[in-house]
Amino acid sequence: MHHSKDNDKPIDKVILLLLLALFLLVSPFMAWWANPSAPWYRPYLIWLFIIALTWWLQHRTRRP
């Protein structure tokens, strides 16, 4: 029988990704990365990181 290591996919991972995104965007952690001494493009890097994780998750879910 198919014993999938993906047993916990994909919803659990989606929730984890959302929690990570919320941690980055609305937790006190934001105060650390969003300070004026940081380069201007830092918010874009964080945004890109979240997009990359979403892409990775989709890529894994689609793989048979």
């Binding site: 994909p10 919803i11 989606v14 929730i15 990704l17 959302l18 995104a21 919320l22 965007l25 918010p43 945004w47 979240i50 997009i51 979403t54 879910t61």
Partner: peptide, 17 residues
């Protein structure tokens, strides 16, 4: 101003559910 698009990103992360 980025929140308007980051909010969309959060909604699309949740697209499976």
């Amino acid at each position: 101003f980025l929140t308007i698009y980051l909010g969309v990103t959060l909604a699309f992360i949740l697209s499976p559910i």
